[in-house]
Design a protein around this nucleic acid. Structure first.
Lengths: 339, 339
DNA sequence: ATGAAAGCGCTAACAA
DNA sequence: TTGTTAGCGCTTTCAT
């Protein structure tokens, strides 16, 4: 490894070159305190000549403020995140904050010890589902580090604000729609992975809707699609191969709905004529599917925006709503069979 | 604004509590140098009791190394980036690096002065297209800060490594396909915004293919779709309204191809029977379009992976290829009319 | 309008 | 095995 001669200019170098003190340079850069125009000009020249770039980390260390927020994601896999990030940025930019995104594909839960996002480059964090483990959450919280949770309630006893969807209600209404409008009764459910809170509440909504309409719960009709199209396709293919009697499938999310559709079509059956399908989220792709997907619209962009706003409030006033539930609404397209 | 009593434990606090020096704590945390097991235990206890989290910024300042790389994007708008990021992460994770992503939707070109990604939290940067202005690029380069450019050649005289697609060749072959296999001659081109390098070379490929096959170039057939579906839809709608004679449209990217398809269909015409369409990129959505889109497959995930590998090489050995061109290939689906 | 000294939280190099 | 000193690059007092 070659000896990297570090020769990057520091504030001292600039100061020397301009014949002033570091303090003056700092004042010029940050436009704080008054500096003679002449002096300022000399400083500016020195800066360009030396290609000086202020070291934001050192600044942050001194000021304890970064004007940037962080977002932690469990992988960038989904289109979902695009909208989420869009919402967050919309809220931040107007307040003069920047957003740094970190995703950890590797170990599902990231620990605070090897996370490149923290106090040094961030004034607060938005944390999606379970992308950070509870111990880390506790540590951060005990240091009063501002955080907002997205789609995940805080560990026991910690009052970390949380923003999520009205999952139960959305699922309930969708299943009710499938029963009342589309006339289905044998409706299967494709859950996410165990522990996924969104999935949990959607399943509760599903069960309650069945109960309300006097349809006995058949546990054989609940499979784990893991919010993944491959997995969902496998499960549904198996159901079909087993000759299970199914009129419709309510997928816990759009991605698994896509897998379900593919499985049905590969089996030579039709959606929705043979088996109807509905999803949850209303992601970007859903309207392009064939047939277009009936789904529960989740305002993911709003979720991002609101989480960001809450985090900002928390940073500035120390206060935020401890739980915000965002309303969902049904989007009826062709896959559910009543169109 | 409330007085935020900062009471977060520092390495000194931990040291005091454990009855050792800060240095010992540092050794325990980083597993560098030897520490008696007993002492280490006391340190660990102190750490948990105080909810101590090392300040990575301070560490970076001291060590001049972060083990994380940065990616700068011009907005998270496109599905495109999902694959790109996937490729980058794949390459980084196995080397023990993390990725931090920053996107600036606001001012199209970001300046180094207000960029939350830099020497303090990053060992090197991958910069997509023109998301960072030339002046910043020069400054960074003069400080020997490791960078790799994606889809953008460096400013005059700077030898910053660059990774991009074989745009010209891909476009050439697609247009040739449309001429030879699909039998089209009046082929329009939907360019990106002026200055977009990908678009530039794709246009060159388009023109060369026409020339090779003795089709006179009609500048009226070249419109600016801006790699945006709305814009592209507008342009194509106008063409149709004007009664322009068009057999096929080669869109500079998939997004504008989608816009073109919509415009054609809204005009009551058929793709590909009345007007054929082809795109470039082969993004995730392309296969779901109706009709499925014929397009030039660009290995975006590879681009990410290779850019990351180059950056790592640059960081460790100071060397990297100055230009890498990634091969593309045609994906023939139904929108071009020869299926 | 400008500068000096001290400190933000951490670690490298050198003792002991 | 452990501690001391100095310094990473910047900004905050407090002087002048």
């Amino acid at each position: 490894m070659p000896e990297l001669e570090r020769q990057r200019a520091t504030i001292e170098d600039v100061a020397e070159r301009a014949g002033v003190s570091a303090m003056t340079v700092s004042r010029v850069i940050n436009k704080t305190g008054s500096v003679a125009t002449q002096t300022a000009d000399r400083v500016y020249s020195a800066i360009t000549e030396l290609n000086y770039i202020p070291h934001r980390g050192a600044r942050a260390l001194a000021v304890q403020k970064t004007n940037t927020l962080g977002l932690i994601l469990p992988g960038f896999s989904d289109v979902f995140f695009l909208e989420l990030i869009g919402g967050i940025e919309a809220a931040l930019i107007e307040k003069g904050y920047a957003l740094l995104v970190y995703s950890s594909t590797q170990p599902k839960k990231q620990t605070v010890l090897n996370m490149p996002l923290g106090e040094h480059n961030t004034d607060g964090l938005i944390i999606f589902t379970d992308s950070l483990d509870d111990v880390s959450l506790r540590r951060l919280h005990s240091r009063r580090f501002p955080m907002v949770l997205l789609h995940h309630s805080p560990p026991e006893g910690l009052d970390i604000p949380c923003v999520t969807f009205e999952n139960k209600k959305g699922a309930y209404r969708m299943v009710e729609h499938m029963i009342q409008q589309c006339g289905h009764r044998r409706i299967a459910f494709l859950a996410g992975e165990p522990g996924n809170e969104d999935s949990y509440w959607r399943e509760v909504g599903y069960k309650e809707a069945l109960a309300t309409h006097n349809i006995p719960l058949d546990l054989g009709l609940i499979g784990i699609g893991a919010f993944d199209d491959q997995v969902a396709e496998g499960v549904v293919s198996q159901w079909i191969a087993d000759g299970m009697e199914i009129e419709a499938i309510f997928a816990g999310d759009d991605v698994s709905a896509r897998g379900a559709i593919r499985a049905i079509q590969k089996a030579g059956l039709s959606v929705p004529d043979d088996i109807a399908v509905a999803g949850f989220d209303d992601g970007l792709l859903s309207q392009y599917l064939d047939p277009p997907l009936t789904t529960v619209h989740a305002p993911i962009e709003d979720a991002g925006r609101i989480a960001a706003e809450q985090l900002l409030r928390l940073i500035h006033s120390g206060q935020a709503e401890s739980l915000i539930l965002l309303p969902t609404k049904l989007v009826i397209r062709r896959s559910c069979g009543c169109y």
